[in-house]
Design a protein around this nucleic acid. Structure first.
Lengths: 150, 150
DNA sequence: TTGACTGCAAACGATTTGCAATTGC
DNA sequence: GCAATTGCAAATCGTTTGCAGTCAA
């Protein structure tokens, strides 16, 4: 999936990221900015391992544990989202606009989609009374067109 | 959460389960029926480990691997569903009627709820063209009333 | 009787941790 | 300079697997 942001937008979001780190009392390290930038630029939904492999050319000494630790830290501060899948490896994305996921059961690719109708609709009574809602994400499993061909 | 089924309903569902196993060519073992019955009776959403602990009094010799293996087998045959959460441990439920999940980020309890409006609504175009949909589940994260009190 | 299923123990993959060295502020 | 962060290696957790004995059909 190509970058959904223009160069300017990207720089702007990265600035916001730095600011958010400062406010949260997080140090702005090279590793952290690169991890976050990568999640923005390649808008697929990599696992920690995939992300690590992709970062190695740019940061030859980055360790897998740092990727894990960084993702966990950024997640705690709401800058990164852990995606709900039924797989063993966790997947991550830069938290930005609310959206939903289509996951292919065969190739495991995750595709984002928007569904404003759902974002604004009222919850049924039971759910509404359950507590305080933090996020509402729809996860659709199925077989993508590519996979159903073969 | 209490049993959502009456004694008669339960027996009926268990009979359907046995039939489904026979059709699928699965042997109806004591372990399998007990695992499935437990998922029906205690309609919370246990992990394999929790399920194993709970089954031990009734089946003192059942092993954790059997629980894992049985859940995997039943899942393959569509009799059990693996729940999408952002946790490390997988959670399971007896597959029955379509429904959605409320998950508390603190206590991790999963609550079912129904939302017919969503079940019948059309997907947005992009999602509709993506491929063949298998399941559409809404996962809502938040903090349940119990946890927000304390 | 026979192949599917189980229990055991050992292996495995994903993630986390303790520690000493390093780096941002 | 100091505390936060990193890289390394070792540990841990959840889950899977090989194998020999057991059990449903």
């Amino acid at each position: 999936m190509a970058t959904p942001y223009s160069q300017e937008q990207l720089e702007q979001i990265m600035e916001q990221f730095v600011t958010a780190c400062r406010i949260a009392g997080l140090k702005v390290t090279h590793q952290r900015t690169e991890i976050y930038r990568h999640l923005l630029v390649i808008a697929d939904h990599p696992s920690a391992e995939t992300l690590h492999k992709r970062l190695l050319p740019a940061l030859p000494s980055i360790s897998l544990d740092t990727v894990y630790r960084t993702l966990a830290t950024l997640e705690q501060h709401g800058l990164v989202t852990r995606i709900q899948t039924a797989e063993s490896q966790a997947r991550f994305e830069a938290a930005y606009k609310p959206h939903h996921h289509l996951i292919c059961s065969r190739c495991k690719q995750v595709m984002d989609f928007h569904w404003p109708a759902i974002d604004s609709i009222d919850l049924p009574e039971l759910a509404d009374q359950w507590g305080q809602i933090e996020s509402k994400t729809i996860v659709i499993y199925g077989v993508c067109k590519n996979c159903s061909k073969s």
